[in-house]
Design a binder for these strands. Structure first.
Lengths: 125, 125, 125, 125
DNA sequence: GTGGTCTAGACCACT
DNA sequence: GTGGTCTAGACCACG
């Protein structure tokens, strides 16, 4: 499920953050669902618990999960995410990527189609 | 023109790579146009020449420029860029960001509008 | 009345301590008024009795309540609170926060106004 | 200068964060001034480098400093701090503490005087 | 020499 | 058994 590339230059904890975020965003993990415990996941991925915790902390900072000592870590309900600033940043990234794609000769139609497909696929899986 | 933030945590050479790529993508730099020499740019930006070279090498690797030893570095004509793999990567990033935006409650209309606006603004500047 | 956030990272017993302290400070709970019994409150809040007891013990330590074994817990009359040390601590916190607010560009007027408003609202509620 | 209490229940990295923040807020450390390196400070305080780094990260997250790999950590200029949300939180803390002080019999005059004194003392030292 | 990442393992508080 | 803190020490990329 959570495939990591230890040879990559991007830090393991960051790969993990991204992968888990994807699971949340694609609703594979539901609201208030419990994530694997730090130690459990560490064993499964043969990674140090500290690394897992770093990923969990980052997700918490970004507002995607919450952790309570003695209880565990859980997916944060969407309604409770403060998204204004994040939306701005994501839209900015969207602009950059679009500009680059257009330069490389991608048609606007193909780009829009990709967006549309993502919308349809987002809620399922 | 090339504003660098020496305070930023992102490496100088990477900032430079991004900025130059933007200039190319927005067609401020035309095909086969010569880029400033390494030493010249290093002086102008008060940066170590090695840093400039690293940025140029990265742009060459990504296929946006080509270097002719003894002559200088030039913008690679669009037609010659091998864009299949890069397009795939960019589209993949597009999907990720779109999924995240949708999860955060952004409407599909707002996303599409952002793309459209980028198209109009892309060729000018 | 005593709203707890079980998702929060701050321990339940600490939330409880703070909430009850607020009730006392805002005079919702009067001097010598009896607090709910540990078991009663535990049922009402669906919390482990140990957690309630820990909160009560903490309040007793801070001098806000007193417990008579076999009878229950009661709000300590203000006159009997040894407040010298606590006042010092609170004033110290006040200084820290004020310094931080000033550093962040808050005007002294806004700070003083906040204090004044608190005074007016403090005794009611 | 940076006195730590290893017996305290409050984490060392948090004590450090607070102490350094004080130095910044009281302008003992000026804008863009370099902080001691992670390792240097670790040696001086006989603390693990990771602990120092955790404190520095927290300060960076709160916007008081910035760190650049290979260069060092520096005090962030005040103008660049995004303070709206932090101000709200600090004012809320101010209200709580004021209510508690008033309950403990502190006169409003004494409270206001404390604020005034802080203002005068803030810029010196 | 700088910050950043990561491992191996210990200990603590909370439930 | 949970997350969180901390130590001791290794290795990497950046400048």
């Amino acid at each position: 499920m959570l495939q990591l590339d230890f040879r990559s230059r991007v830090p393991v904890y960051e790969q993990l953050t991204e992968k888990i975020k994807e699971l949340i965003v694609h609703k594979v993990l539901a609201s208030d669902e419990q994530l694997p415990s730090v130690r459990e996941l560490a064993l499964e991925l043969t990674v140090n618990p500290n690394t897992i915790q770093k990923a969990y902390r980052e997700l918490e900072r970004q507002g995607y999960i919450y952790s309570a000592p003695g209880k565990g870590s859980f997916v944060k309900p969407i309604e409770q995410i403060d998204n204004t600033r994040q939306k701005e940043e994501l839209l900015e990234q969207l602009r950059k990527i679009t500009a680059e794609l257009l330069y490389l000769g991608t048609s606007i139609e193909e780009i829009l189609a990709t967006i549309q497909k993502t919308k349809k696929g987002g809620g399922e899986k």
